[in-house]
Amino acid sequence: MLATSETVEILDQSEQLGKLVSGSDVYERYLQAKQDMERDREAQRLIRAFQDSKTQYEEVERFGRYHPDYNQIMKAVRQKKRDMDMNDYVAAYKVAERELQKLLDELSQIIAGSISPQIKVPKDGAVFQDTGGGCGCGSGGGCGCS
C-alpha cells in the first residue's frame, strides 16, 4: 500500500478518534473499574480460583461426561464463576467493559454506515451483524428471524 495524502489523512483522523475515545467518560470509568478490581484482594482471589477451576474443566472437557469428575468439576466451575461475578468490583468492571464495548460498537457502526449500509460490522460479541436490515443469520432473510 502506497502512502498517499488520503491515506495519511485517514490515519490522522483515526488517531484523533482514538484520542477522543480514550478521553471519554466511558473509558475513564472503565479504567477506574479495572484498577479497583485489580487492587481488591478478594476480587483477585476469586478470579484466580475461577481460573484454576477452568483449568480443571479443560482437562475434564477432553473426556466429556465420561470423565469420573465431570459433574463435580462442572458444578465447581459454575459456583466459582458465580462467586466471582457477585464481587462488587468484578461486577462494576464488567458493566464498565460492556459500556466501553457499546461505545466502540456504535462508532464502528457509524463509520461503516457512512460508507455503505451493506457493510457488516462486529457487534455485541458477534462476528458479524447485517447492518442493512436483514436478519444477520446468513440465510439471506429466508428464515424469518429478522
Rank of each mutant, 00 (worst) to 15 (best):
R65F: 04
Y27M: 06
L46F: 00
G140F: 06
V21G: 11
S14F: 06
E6S: 09
A76R: 10
D69A: 15
E6A: 08
K75S: 13
R65Y: 00
S14H: 00
A3P: 02
K80M: 13
H67S: 08
Q35K: 15
M1Y: 09
A91G: 02
A33Y: 03
L107W: 08
R82D: 05
K54Q: 15
Q118A: 12
A91D: 02
G18S: 09
M74L: 14
Q101W: 01
M1F: 12
V8L: 15
S53K: 12
D124C: 02
Q16I: 01
E28S: 14
Y93F: 10
Q44S: 02
M84R: 09
K75W: 06
V95G: 01
D12K: 14
Q32M: 10
K80P: 01
Q51E: 12
R29L: 10
A76D: 14
Q35N: 05
K54I: 11
Q16R: 08
G136F: 05
V121S: 01
L31D: 00
L107D: 06
G140R: 00
V60F: 08
G134C: 04
Y66N: 15
G142Q: 11
Q56W: 11
P117S: 01
Y89Q: 09
H67T: 10
L103R: 07
V90G: 08
Y89K: 15
F128D: 15
A49K: 04
V77P: 07
S53R: 07
S24K: 08
Q79G: 03
D105Q: 04
L31A: 02
D69K: 12
C135R: 02
Y89H: 07
R45H: 08
D69P: 05
E59Y: 07
V77R: 15
L11D: 14
Q118R: 11
E59L: 03
M1W: 02
Q56E: 14
G144H: 01
S22R: 12
G23I: 05
G64M: 10
E9L: 11
D130Y: 07
P122L: 06
M1D: 02
S53D: 08
S5T: 12
G144F: 05
A126N: 15
S24L: 03
I119G: 02
L11Q: 00
E15M: 14
G144D: 01
N87T: 03
L46V: 00
E99Y: 06
E42V: 03
Y70E: 01
R39Y: 01
D83L: 04
M84P: 02
L17K: 00
S14M: 13
S24G: 07
V121R: 05
S139Q: 08
P68Q: 10
A43T: 09
V121Y: 01
G138M: 00
A126G: 07
